[in-house]
Each structure stands twice: as structure tokens, then as C-alpha cells.
């Protein structure tokens, strides 16, 4: 065995024993200075009705210190509506919605983070990027998702009031540390399942290009397709403020 192979094996064995190290490694691998993509949202309700929306997503920074703006581009009725997310390392994010037609912002209160994100199956909380330090992790074993071997971990928020979920199960792919699936629980009930597919390597970062969020209470699902993904695009920090939203509306 080569030296490199030996260290790889050592790291693998070490990571197997420490779930925090696994998620930190996954976080490290997905870290970028910025991100931009165009997303297509397809909401399929329990009765088969489909609603489609498009947005542009810009993020600067990463994880606990990132800022993101999500701006709807279609359909015409919602064009210009934006969501500003300021993530924090040690607490839940701050979120504001900008409505250009009335030219004003509204704060999304912490209490409302569990509500649906404007008719989709994502909640406002699901749009946050949280630092691994906000959770405790437990290794539950190994399972394969879509044929890929994954670690199955349990994450529990350290501050119970900071999240709507009492705990979540995470499946991280062993081969590239990409997230394959998350199941979110409220008390003992499974409320949402996010399934990550079409995982591609974009500029060295393994990224899912399709996320299928399933609301098990409503039995509806939202599929987010990520297109025109770019990492480390030049973005200005002051573009992620309410003033900037106002300016650009």
C-alpha cells in the first residue's frame, strides 16, 4: 500500500468514527466564496397540479457567514420578489422579503421559518445555510442512496428553539461527501424529505442539480432544478442588503 493510500485509509477509518469530522469535511468540500445559479421550481401538489417558478440565486460567503439573495424571475406575477438571507454562525438567519409592487420589505420572523416558502414544499428554514457548529451529530451507520454508499448521520440542533426540526437524518455520500438525502423530523414524525440527485462536479465542488423536497404532511413535492451554476463569481458584499434590493427593484 502506498503512503498516500495508507493515509487515505487512516482518514477514512477516523472519519467513520467521528460524524462531526464527516460533516465538517463535507462543509469544507462544498465551501466557495460565492455561488450563482438559476433555479426552476416545480411544485406538484397532492392533486397533481403543477406550478412552476424560476429564480436566480446569488450567495456570497459560505455556510454560517454567508449572505444570499433569491430573486424570482418568473412567472410575471412574481417577478422581482426577492428574499434576502443573512446567515449567522451561531444562530438562525435573518430573512427579509422584498415586494417591488409595494416597494417595501417585510421581515420573516423566526416563528415563521417553519412555514412554507411561498407555496413550495421548502420552508424558510430549509433555505438557510447553517454552520455545522449549530448541531450535534451522531453516526447511525451506512446505507446506500441511489446506489451510492452513504454515511447515515443524525443531526440535532444545539438550541432547540433555533429550528422547527427536532432532529434530522443526513445521508452523505462516501465517495464525494455530497449530500444525498435529508429527512427532517418534528418530534418523532417525519415531516420533510429532501432527495439530492444529478450530483455533478462543478468547479471542484460536488453539487446536486436536482433537489426533490417532499412534504409528507401535505403529500406534495417541489423539485428544484439547478441550472447555470457558477462558483466563486465576483460579487459585492453590499449587493446583499435591503438597500440593494430596493435599488434593483
Amino acid at each position: 500500500m502506498s503512503k498516500r493510500g495508507f493515509y487515505g485509509l487512516l482518514m477514512f477509518v477516523f472519519l467513520q468514527q467521528d460524524p462531526r469530522q464527516i460533516v465538517e469535511e463535507a462543509q469544507r468540500r462544498s465551501t466557495s466564496q460565492s455561488q450563482r445559479y438559476e433555479g426552476t421550481l416545480r411544485v406538484l401538489d397532492a392533486k397533481g397540479k403543477i406550478i412552476e417558478k424560476r429564480w436566480q440565486y446569488d450567495r456570497v460567503g459560505s455556510h454560517g457567514s454567508s449572505k444570499a439573495v433569491l430573486r424570482f424571475t418568473a412567472p410575471a406575477e412574481v417577478k422581482g420578489v426577492a428574499l434576502l438571507i443573512i446567515n449567522h454562525a451561531d444562530k438562525a438567519s435573518d430573512q427579509w422579503m422584498w415586494t417591488p409592487a409595494i416597494n417595501r420589505e417585510r421581515r420573516i420572523a423566526l416563528q415563521d421559518r417553519s412555514t412554507r416558502f411561498f407555496g413550495t414544499d421548502f420552508s424558510f428554514e430549509d433555505l438557510e445555510e447553517r454552520d455545522t457548529n449549530q448541531f450535534d451529530y451522531k453516526m447511525l451507520g451506512e446505507e446506500s442512496i441511489d446506489g451510492a454508499a452513504c454515511w447515515k448521520l443524525q443531526s440535532t440542533p444545539r438550541q432547540s428553539k433555533a429550528s422547527q426540526y427536532s432532529h434530522s437524518y443526513l445521508w452523505l455520500r462516501k465517495d464525494n461527501f455530497a449530500l444525498a438525502q435529508i429527512e427532517n423530523y418534528s418530534k418523532d414524525q417525519l415531516v420533510r424529505r429532501a432527495h439530492y440527485t444529478d450530483i455533478r462536479n462543478d468547479q471542484g465542488i460536488w453539487t446536486a442539480h436536482e433537489i426533490d423536497m417532499h412534504d409528507l404532511k401535505r403529500n406534495s413535492r417541489t423539485i428544484l432544478k439547478v441550472e447555470k451554476l457558477q462558483y466563486n463569481v465576483s460579487m459585492k458584499d453590499d449587493a446583499f442588503t435591503l438597500q440593494a434590493l430596493r435599488r434593483e427593484s
Partner: peptide
């Protein structure tokens, strides 16, 4: 009714004052 699913979209509701 079910036909109102599109209306059951707070985003459209909020975007149009």
C-alpha cells in the same frame, strides 16, 4: 376548491398588492 391551488400561492398573493 382544487382549481384554486394556484391562488393558494402566497407569493402571487403577496407580489400583487
Amino acid at each position: 376548491d382544487a382549481d384554486d391551488a394556484i391562488i393558494d400561492d402566497p407569493l402571487v398573493f403577496l407580489a400583487q398588492p
